[in-house]
Design a protein around this nucleic acid. Structure first.
Lengths: 182, 182
DNA sequence: ATGATTTTCTACCGATCAGTATAAAACCGT
DNA sequence: ACGGTTTTATACTGATCGGTAGAAAATCAT
C-alpha cells in the first residue's frame, strides 16, 4: 500500500513489492493473483485505515455545514500524516498512464465519484433536515468541495505544510453560504 | 505533447512517440537527445500553446479580482478543450512515479509553484494598486486558487463537463471577499 | 552527375517488466 | 519418524523498456 501510494500503480513494480514485503514473487502471486488485484487490495486497505475521506465524519455531524467542515479538516490532516506518503492515494495513484491500465484508472475514478456522491447525499439530507437552503444544488456544491479535496492532494505532494492546507480548507468553507445560496 | 498529456511521462514510451510522429527512433534521439529532454520540449510547447494557465490574462486585468476571475474561467475552459486531452498537462503528466524519474516530477512541481507565485504576485500588486485589502495574505490566497486549479484537472479527467467546471470556478470566486479579508 | 554529408531503417543492446515452471524446503496430521 | 501437502527460493519466459550501432538511402554543394 505504501509503495503504491508513494509511486503510483505503474511506478511500482511487482519486484519492488516482493522486495519490500520480503516475500518471493511466486508467493505474492499465489496470494493476490496478479498486480492489478494486489493494487485493489492495497486500495481497500487504504480506505479501511488511512483513507483521506471518511463517510462517518460526514454523516455523524448534526448539520451539513459542520459535516463538511469536519470532513475537510480531517482530509487536510490525513494528507500530511507523517507516517505515510503525502497526498491522497485515490487521487494520486493512477490519474494517467498506458491504455492497458485503463481499468485501474477507471476504478479510482469510480472511487472519487463515490466521494462526490457521498458529499452530495449529505447535502440532500441537509436540505431535508432544514439546515441547508432548499434551493441549494447538492451536485454542484459537492463537486466544488471534491475539487478542493483533489487539489489538496497535489498541494501535499508539492510540499505544502499543514498550515497551508488548513488555510485552503478555511477558504473553501468561507464559500459555503454563497455556494448553498444562503 | 498530446501523448505525454494523455498518458503521462511514464505512461508514454519512446516507441509510442516514434510511431505517432511517424519518425524512426534514431531520428527522435538525434533531434531530442533523450526521453526526458523530449518531454521538457513537449512541456515547453504546451506552455506556449494550450497551457491551462496564462500569466497574461492575470496581468492585463485592471484589478486582482477581475484577473483571478478571468484566469480561472480561461483555465476551466482550456481544461476541456475538445482538441486536446482533458485536464492540465502540468498537473497530470507526472505527479507520482519511480524514483529514477524524480527529476521530471520535480520539474513539474516547480512549474506549479511558478503558477502559485504568479497568483501571489498579482495579489501583491492588487494591494499596491489599492484594489485588494492591505491585510490580505497573498501566499495564502494564491495557494487556495492554485488548489482549485489543480483540482479542476482531476475533475476534467474524471469526465466533468464545462458547466461543472464553470460552477466550481464560480464557487471559488465566491470565497474571494472572505479570503482577502474584505 | 559526382563525392561528401546528413538523414533514416533495420536490427540490435542490456535492463526491466509482469508472470510462471520447477524443485527444494518447511510444515502437517498421524 | 513418516507421507502428503503447502510454502518458498531459484531461475526462467516472452515482451517491452530507453537507447544505439551500422548500413542503406536521400540530400547537398559543386
Amino acid at each position: 500500500m505504501l509503495l503504491f501510494w508513494e509511486r503510483g500503480y505503474e511506478g511500482t513494480s511487482v519486484g519492488d513489492l516482493s522486495e519490500a514485503l520480503d516475500i518471493g514473487k511466486p508467493s505474492l502471486y499465489a496470494a493476490f493473483g496478479n498486480k492489478e488485484n494486489l493494487f485493489l487490495e492495497a486500495l481497500q486497505l487504504y480506505e479501511n485505515t488511512y483513507g483521506c475521506f471518511s463517510p462517518n465524519a460526514l454523516n455523524d455531524a448534526p448539520t451539513a455545514r459542520i459535516a463538511f467542515a469536519e470532513t475537510l479538516r480531517r482530509n487536510a490532516e490525513s494528507q500530511l500524516n507523517p507516517d505515510t506518503p503525502p497526498g491522497c492515494f485515490i487521487v494520486l495513484a493512477a490519474t494517467v498512464g498506458t491504455p492497458q491500465n485503463a481499468e485501474v484508472r477507471a476504478h479510482l475514478t469510480r472511487r472519487r465519484q463515490a466521494t462526490r456522491d457521498h458529499l452530495a447525499a449529505r447535502l440532500t439530507r441537509g436540505i431535508a433536515d432544514g439546515d441547508v437552503p432548499a434551493g441549494a444544488d447538492p451536485q454542484a456544491v459537492a463537486t466544488f468541495y471534491a475539487t478542493v479535496i483533489n487539489g489538496l492532494a497535489i498541494e501535499a505532494r508539492d510540499g505544502a505544510r499543514q498550515a497551508d492546507l488548513d488555510r485552503i480548507v478555511t477558504g473553501a468553507l468561507a464559500a459555503w453560504d454563497s455556494l448553498v445560496g444562503a
